[in-house]
Simulated assay, not measured.
Amino acid sequence: MAIFEKGILGGFSGKVGNVVGSRWRGKDVMRSLPQRGKYTPTPKQLEQREKFKAVILFLTPIISVVSLYFGNRQGDKSRFNIATSYHLKEAVVDSPLGYVIDFTKVLISKGDLRGLDRGAVSAAAGQTLNFSWADNSGQGNASPFDELIVVVYAPDLDTFYTNLSVDTRDATSGSVTLPAFMAGFDVEVWASFNKPDTNLAAISTYLGRVTMV
């Protein structure tokens, strides 16, 4: 890049031949066009691209959840960026089908709120999932009015179900009804608590795989 003083023609903006003119920090500058060459990514770069693709495909449908409840923004890093970074490092595994998500390592939320104690889930008729947990209100920053978050994923359908307000912590139980087309399919289930009207949430709990009735 070169800086030039205005001559009889003054500065210019745009491309002339293989030179590009522009303004940079109040000065007229020229730079040559980048040379195009053949670029072959390394095996490590290809691996990282495939991992990134797996994570983005998984997280994008629940961006509304992780963007609210996954940690705290860090400078120009959004909560979704932070969630992506975590899952790239912790939740991607190699398989005969390529890189896939390890559901046991997935977090739908990550924060300092007290999480579930003795959380459990079971399937019932009518595409219903029944949840139970212990009321640990008063432990740490846990409140009776914290709300249960539920995220359900059906891998064979590549479909999510989310509910950010199933019931309150002190209720100790709650249920959700999934769409009828999920009947008979296996689903992966995660749950957490959030504090209403804030971005504060718990580290989510993986409750396991359930076959819908």
Rank of each mutant, 00 (worst) to 15 (best):
T104P: 09
K27M: 10
P196N: 06
P34M: 09
W133Y: 08
R73W: 04
R114S: 08
I82N: 07
T84I: 03
I101R: 05
S192I: 09
S192Q: 08
Y86K: 14
Y153V: 14
T168S: 03
S175P: 09
S173G: 11
T172E: 13
E188P: 09
K27G: 07
N81C: 13
N130F: 01
D135I: 02
D170V: 15
S32Y: 00
Y153M: 14
F131R: 04
A123I: 02
S13E: 14
R169N: 09
D167F: 00
P96D: 11
T205R: 01
V65W: 01
A124C: 01
I101T: 12
I108P: 13
L68S: 14
D112P: 07
V210K: 05
T42H: 13
P41W: 07
A124V: 05
S122F: 07
R23L: 14
D94I: 07
M212E: 03
K110H: 11
G26K: 07
L113T: 02
A154Q: 05
R209D: 04
L9G: 10
N163L: 07
R169S: 11
G37K: 10
A120Y: 11
V19A: 06
R31L: 08
F145Q: 11
L207H: 02
D197H: 04
T172V: 15
Q139N: 13
N136Y: 09
S64K: 12
V65Y: 00
L178T: 08
L157T: 15
F70G: 05
F193G: 02
R73D: 08
T198L: 05
Q127D: 08
P41R: 04
G138K: 03
W190G: 02
V176C: 07
V55M: 04
G17K: 03
D167G: 02
G26S: 10
V16P: 12
V65G: 02
V121F: 03
V29H: 06
R73L: 12
S137K: 07
L68N: 13
I62Y: 10
G140D: 06
L129D: 00
V150Q: 04
A183D: 09
V65K: 00
A54G: 08
F131K: 03
E5P: 01
T40L: 08
K6Y: 11
N130I: 10
T159P: 06
L68I: 08
Y161D: 01
G184S: 06
L129W: 02
M1E: 13
S175D: 14
I82S: 05
Y39I: 15
F131E: 03
R49Q: 15
R49I: 10
L97K: 05
F70Y: 12
V19T: 11
G7Q: 08
G184P: 09
I3V: 14
V29E: 09
T162C: 04
S64A: 13
F103G: 11
T104G: 11
A124Q: 08
F70H: 01
F185A: 11
L157D: 14
Q48C: 02
I62M: 13
I8H: 00
K110Q: 12
T198F: 06
L129I: 05
G174H: 00
T40I: 04
Q35N: 14
T198Q: 10
